[in-house]
């Protein structure tokens, strides 16, 4: 396995609320290999966005990171002084967001916003140099007529173009890691494909690592080298993308895969996972997926199952994994 650029260890992000502390991310450990893509999949509210904001230390109050370490090349980002963390943002770890419509400031020109990102980390760069580099950054994300776009404002651009601008801005200081939080969710399908292609091309050009957060398994299948499936604030299963898609071991992953429509199979109805994600203030004591799990047995409700090795680098947090073996024993529900 390649050396990890970023490793997250036992991360716990909590929100204080009227019902006590709610953990949006609860003991998550993950690692992102250099130059590769980690896909984080899960339903809305599973904590995947909070996980990424925790890495950036941008969790909105009243949320906070309560425990864990986020090691970027061995340096714990969570204990860095504020000024140093600010220097990490944008320069070493950059982020793009789901809503290209609202993620750019409507009152500043595209060029100003890109130059601002550069100036934050290179205060001594001259205006002409920044301008040239910003135009080059726009050209790099395949924006036609970058000189003209440079002076335009976000409202003059389409959604796909705005996401390209976001990417240009994120890559302006050549970060080692790009966190893409649902980068294509708000876009048309054809534009989605273009943006994903672009990300892949830029990755091979720059050698950066990518954390791709999405609820779209199709996007993960296309992009990710490694996959982590999250459920209710925890990692349910993680491993190489191929292993996750070809040999899923956690019942939740199985359920997710079963709910994708496919052209090569004739099915009358899609499989859906029964029930819904438990609210964060009423989590079951054992496995959080147990109430919805067709394979659940009574020990599932006793204690949260730890991640266990299933195969090479493939882990699942399920006491019944590997599922086939359990089913072969004939004790399925």
């Amino acid at each position: 396995m390649t050396e990890a650029l970023l490793s997250i260890e036992g991360l716990r992000t909590v929100f204080r609320s009227g019902m006590g502390e709610i953990a949006a991310v609860d003991g998550v450990s993950l690692s992102v290999p250099r130059g590769r893509t980690l896909g984080i999949v899960g339903e809305s509210g599973c904590g995947k966005s909070m996980l990424s904001l925790s890495v950036m230390r941008l969790v909105p109050p009243p949320g906070r990171v309560a425990a864990g370490r986020v090691l970027l090349e061995g340096r714990d980002l969570l204990t860095l002084p504020k000024a140093e963390m600010r220097d990490v943002r944008g320069r070493e770890v950059a982020m793009i967001f789901q809503e290209p419509m609202t993620s750019l400031n409507p009152v500043h020109s595209i060029g100003d916003q890109i130059m601002e990102a550069m100036r934050a980390h290179e205060p001594r760069a001259g205006a002409a140099e920044l301008r040239d580099r910003a135009i080059a950054a726009l050209a790099r994300v395949r924006i036609p007529a970058p000189e003209r776009r440079f002076t335009e404002y976000p409202h003059q651009l389409s959604g796909g173009m705005r996401q390209r601008v976001m990417i240009a801005m994120a890559l302006a200081c050549s970060p080692k890691l790009l966190i893409a939080d649902e980068p294509t969710t708000a876009l048309d399908v054809t534009v989605q494909a273009q943006i994903l292609d672009l990300l892949r091309e830029l990755q091979s050009e720059t050698g950066m690592s990518i954390i791709l957060i999405t609820h779209d398994l199709g996007v993960v299948a296309e992009m990710a080298d490694e996959v982590a499936v999250m459920y209710a604030g925890r990692v349910a299963e993680r491993g190489p993308a191929r292993a996750i898609f070809e040999d899923p071991q956690h019942p939740y992953t199985l359920g997710l895969l079963g709910s994708i429509p496919r052209l090569d199979e004739e099915r009358e109805t899609l499989l859906a996972i029964e029930g819904s994600v438990p609210p964060p203030f009423a989590l079951p004591p054992g496995c959080r997926f147990a109430p919805r799990c067709p394979f659940a047995i009574s020990p599932c409700n006793a204690a949260p199952p730890p991640l266990r090795d299933i195969a090479d680098a493939h882990e699942a947090a399920c006491i019944r994994a590997p599922i086939e073996a359990s089913l072969a024993l004939g004790n399925a529900a």
């Binding site: 600010r86 220097d87 944008g90 967001f97 609202t102 400031n105 990102a117």
Partner: peptide, 12 residues
């Protein structure tokens, strides 16, 4: 959202 973007860029 765009304020979050500004912070993510590393602005003071």
């Amino acid at each position: 959202d765009h304020v979050r973007t500004a912070r993510a860029k590393g602005l003071s």
